[in-house]
Amino acid sequence: MKLTLKVWRQKNATAKGQLVTYTIDGIDGDMSFLEMMDMLNNKLINEGDAPVTFDHDCREGICGSCSMFINGEAHGPDRLVTTCQLHMRKFKDGDTITIEPFRAAGFPVIKDLMVDRSAFDRIQHAGGFISVNTSGNTQDANSIPIEKENADNAFAAATCIGCGACVASCKNSSAMLFVGAKVSQFALLPQGEVEATNRVLNMVKQMDEEGFGNCTNTGACEVECPKGISLENIARMNREYLAASLEG
């Protein structure tokens, strides 16, 4: 199939970017979106142009690196997939595809389609962990009985890959689905109880300091999340935060 691509090109973090139009032919429906981008880059290199910079790593939907905003949606029009899992069969011959970087004050553009998502790392560092004695006396996690429902919900929250599609999709650039998932995966387990109060207070504080917007419950994050992280995680974080604030 033959496509017209409108790709955001921006030389560096401070340069003014713009959409640049390219045409590309010979796209197979079984290709992934990133393979199509590889083809575009090969073409650009052969023509002496600079290739389009974009994040990618595992290309199997688990690393959270790819981050494109395709035709107005994070990770494109498909549901529950990352950009690397998006197949070109979702598009038709002759289509025009607009490709932009994730947009948020907390995700500044580095170059072209690559954004700096280290804000998520800093939020994790603020509390997204449990302190465990690793000197040899660590209790085997399997020996701690956990309710099936809690174990399942904790696991579901832990499937968040931190790609940032929630922020990119939210009209307010809110990071609450990500933070909600990271708070929930520990809040639901006994191992997370010890640091529960400080965790939620510190992670939310860091989230606010990073310049992400406020949640207005539009639910766009849940719809666009490639891992189907539920809004229940935001509600749980709200509960945890209120309880921690009253306690603290």
């Binding site: 409108k6 107005g72 607009t98 932009e100 307010n172 917007g213 719809v223 666009e224």
Partner: peptide, 20 residues
């Protein structure tokens, strides 16, 4: 605050695809 959280907007943003 929310407007400040996205200083550069999208050229194409399909809000109706994921939120009422």
């Amino acid at each position: 605050q929310n407007r400040k959280a996205r200083p550069v907007g999208y050229v194409e943003y399909k809000g109706s695809a994921n939120a009422p």
